[in-house]
């Protein structure tokens, strides 16, 4: 075909021919698009946590060495978790509160499985600092719990925000008791 102008569009006769040709291009394009998506997925998924990171998603803790009135800090998913073996006074203080007056209303019963054991993530819900109160001699704030030195948030003996800029209570992670002395966090 000695056309002078390069063909840019079909010069065929018959709609039938066109439909068949278009279907081929459509099918090719569709299969190609599927391929592109399938190729992109591993690139995206590779950025998800690797299998060894996921394996550290839960931590088991032996509670037997923690005496009444003592606190320990364990690491779970890279975050500090406060485990406090609460005294009777602390438990009573945690219960004797008008829940509706709290900034983030939650009863103590809703925050613990066994009353003597409080387990909360030790990250201030304001801007992420680690509150003080785990070690003897640490300031514990006005509510006998924890005190965040960064901007002055006070948490009570149930880890609830009582005073200061933090908006929410200290987060209670998912946990379960495997037996009387072992808890699995996460």
């Amino acid at each position: 075909m000695a056309e002078t102008a390069p063909a840019t569009g079909p010069a065929e006769s018959g709609g039938d021919e066109e439909t068949r040709r278009d279907f081929l291009y459509l099918a090719t394009g569709a299969v190609g698009a599927v391929g592109v998506v399938a190729a992109v997925w591993p690139l995206v998924d590779s950025m998800n946590p690797a299998t060894n990171v996921l394996a550290l998603a839960s931590t088991e803790v032996d509670l037997s060495p923690v005496a009444v009135g003592q606190s320990i800090t364990v690491v779970w998913q890279g975050k500090p978790v406060f485990i406090r073996h609460r005294t009777e006074t602390e438990i009573a203080e945690a219960r004797d509160v008008d829940v509706s007056a709290l900034r983030d209303p939650q009863s103590d019963a809703d925050r613990v499985i066994k009353a003597p054991w409080l387990i909360v993530v030790g990250i201030c819900t304001h801007l992420g600092c680690i509150p003080l109160g785990q070690k003897p001699g640490d300031p514990r704030g006005d509510y006998d719990g924890w005190f965040c030195p960064c901007h002055g948030s006070h948490y009570d003996s149930s880890g609830r925000i009582r005073k200061g800029p933090a908006p929410r209570n200290l987060v209670v992670p998912g946990y379960a008791y495997l037996n009387d002395t072992t808890v699995k966090i996460g």
Binding site: A7, E12, L24, T28, V34, G35
Partner: peptide
């Protein structure tokens, strides 16, 4: 298998596009 199918379709498409000008 996927690439065999796709390459087959691409080949058919190529032949179709070029059939316009091949004498």
């Amino acid at each position: 298998l996927f690439l065999l199918v796709l390459t087959g379709l691409l080949y058919a498409s190529k032949r179709k596009v070029w059939s316009k000008i091949k004498s």
